[in-house]
């Protein structure tokens, strides 16, 4: 049974922000991650603030500039099936379709998917590790098969979201409401690496909620794709995943974004590999070069070096495919 908490059904965004500031409030959207965390005592809360009654957070609207605004409460199923997203932001629709199971997609929201807690089994178990305010990381010398190969410092989680890498590949932005009003943060800067603060996953401050994710208009001729490799066929988090967004002109790459899931504590953008790809002829040779560059900074732990060839192979295949598409 879940430990007790008080419950507030917020009538508006403002009301949710107010509710959060009383005690150590937590937002409830679909509840698929929050209830799991509370049951596993990952954290406690005395006030759950439900935002599910706030209708405006459910909307998916085209923006005046030709982009798309997706309300934080849009379900993962809605994101995967929305015709505009499927047509203009296919990597996002593909990523959403790869999230968890049908039931969880019907229930889980995009906002919750971005704000979900890590899946490190020590963290989810009864270990008072660094991320929970303890004094050590249990994964670094323990069972680290599913941990990161990039960006680990003190903590070695992988970011669990499939939608985040796709959103970052499109240059999406989060709209955030808080006690001081509204602000916008590029999704790329929304996630906090452990080197900066090992106890935080996002830049959200106390009392802040994500209200929407805004996608810029897609570049003309942009090709994009999300691929996920997992160890089980039914549902599973990514062992390795890649969101690609590439544009070519006269056969040469003019824009490239490569963002990995299952690789690092935050969605991992491969800036060097992207740069090296720009100006190259799109094809098998540049794909091979990109793949080799992608993994050059990898720092595997004892049990997860298998991820290096996995990422390398996947990136090479997908960059080559997308160039030919």
């Amino acid at each position: 049974m879940t430990p007790g908490f008080s419950y507030r059904r917020a009538a508006s965004i403002k009301d949710a922000v107010t509710g959060l500031s009383e005690g150590n409030g937590r937002i409830l959207a679909g509840g698929t991650d929050l209830l799991g965390c509370l049951r596993d005592s990952v954290f406690t809360t005395d006030m759950v603030v439900s935002i599910t009654g706030i209708k405006e957070l459910k909307r998916i609207d085209e923006t005046p500039g030709g982009g798309l605004s997706i309300g934080a409460l849009a379900t993962i199923t809605e994101v995967s099936e929305n015709p505009v997203i499927r047509e203009r932001y296919p990597a996002l629709a593909q990523a959403a379709a790869e999230v968890a199971s049908p039931q969880l997609r019907n229930q889980g929201t995009l906002g919750g998917n971005l704000c979900q807690k890590p899946r490190c089994w020590y963290y989810r178990g009864e270990f008072h590790c660094l991320r929970k305010g303890g004094d050590r990381c249990y994964a670094v010398a323990g069972e680290n098969h599913y941990h990161c190969i990039f960006g680990g410092k003190g903590c070695y989680i992988v970011h669990p979201s499939d939608t985040a890498p796709a959103l970052i590949a499109y240059g999406a932005e989060a709209t955030i409401a808080g006690p001081a009003g509204m602000r916008k943060v590029s999704l790329e800067n929304f996630f906090v690496p452990p080197a900066k603060d090992v106890t935080k996953e996002t830049v959200l401050e106390a009392g802040e909620i994500v209200t929407a994710i805004v996608l810029p208009p897609p570049l003309a001729g942009l090709k994009s794709f999300y691929r996920k490799i997992r160890s089980r066929q039914s549902w599973d988090f990514a062992l390795a995943g890649v969101a690609l967004a590439i544009r070519t002109s006269n056969g040469r790459v003019t824009d490239a974004r490569i963002v990995l899931s299952g690789a690092a504590p935050i969605p991992w953008r491969l800036v060097d590999a992207e740069k090296a790809l720009i100006g190259k002829v799109a094809g098998p040779d540049s794909a091979k070069h990109t793949a080799a560059l992608s993994i050059k900074d990898a720092q595997p732990l004892k049990h997860n070096a298998y991820k290096i060839p996995l990422f390398k192979g996947m990136i090479e295949e997908e960059v080559a495919n997308i160039s030919q598409a």
């Binding site: 419950y7 059904r9 409830l28 679909g30 509840g31 698929t32 209830l35 799991g36 439900s50 599910t52 049908p102 039931q103 969880l104 019907n106 229930q107």
Partner: peptide, 11 residues
């Protein structure tokens, strides 16, 4: 289809 275990009754 949804999971009843991950849904609060008040919701």
């Amino acid at each position: 289809p949804r999971y009843a275990c991950m849904t609060l009754a008040v919701e």
